[in-house]
Simulated assay, not measured.
Amino acid sequence: MTKYVMWGSYCENVLEKRAPFRDDHLAGLAKQKESGVLITIGPTKDLTKVFAIYEAADETAVRDLVETDPYWVNGIWTEYNIKEWIQAF
């Protein structure tokens, strides 16, 4: 499996806007983590960016996970990009 890095941006006023979608978002991430496709994910301290590492068959699989996440569907994540990652260590 290939590893991918995802960087994205959050909307303004993210703390209040994410509230209605947070439980579903976290539940989905927990399932991804259990399945092994999600290695790690989290926001930057200033809550402007999100960073994740996935291990998947291809970039399309990662895009599908991002684009079906409640944060993407509801505009909490406003943009993202994915790059194939070569883990050196």
Rank of each mutant, 00 (worst) to 15 (best):
I86A: 09
I76W: 03
W72I: 10
K3Y: 12
V66I: 14
L26T: 05
Y71N: 06
G75R: 04
W72G: 08
D24G: 13
R22M: 09
T44Q: 08
A56T: 00
D64G: 08
D24H: 11
Y71W: 13
W7Q: 12
W85P: 01
Q32H: 11
V66Y: 01
P43I: 09
V73T: 15
L29T: 04
L65P: 09
T40G: 07
V50W: 02
T40S: 13
G75T: 09
R18A: 10
K83W: 00
V73P: 04
N74E: 06
V62N: 00
A88M: 04
D24P: 02
R22I: 04
K3Q: 10
D64F: 07
D58Y: 04
K33N: 06
G28S: 06
T44D: 08
A61G: 02
R18P: 06
W72H: 13
V66E: 01
A57R: 08
T68W: 05
D69M: 03
S35E: 14
Y4K: 03
W85A: 07
L38T: 00
D64K: 15
E16T: 11
I82A: 02
R18W: 06
P43R: 05
D46G: 11
Y4S: 01
V50F: 07
T78A: 04
N81R: 12
K17V: 06
D58I: 08
W77N: 08
W77H: 10
Q32N: 09
T48V: 09
P20G: 05
I53N: 03
G28F: 05
V73Q: 14
E16K: 11
T40E: 12
A88W: 02
F21V: 06
A88L: 12
S35N: 14
E79Y: 06
R22C: 00
A57Y: 00
I39Y: 01
A30I: 09
L15P: 00
I82R: 04
E34L: 11
D23M: 10
D64E: 15
R18Y: 01
V14W: 10
I41K: 00
K3D: 00
I76A: 05
A52V: 05
D58R: 05
F89R: 11
K3W: 00
M6T: 01
K17L: 14
E84H: 07
E16M: 08
A88I: 08
V62S: 02
G42H: 08
A61V: 11
T78P: 08
A52R: 04
P20E: 10
H25G: 03
E67R: 10
E55A: 13
T40K: 09
T60W: 04
M6L: 12
N74H: 14
D23G: 03
L15E: 15
P20C: 07
A61H: 02
E67S: 03
N13H: 14
K3A: 01
Q32K: 09
G8D: 03
A56L: 03
L26H: 10
G75N: 10
I41G: 00
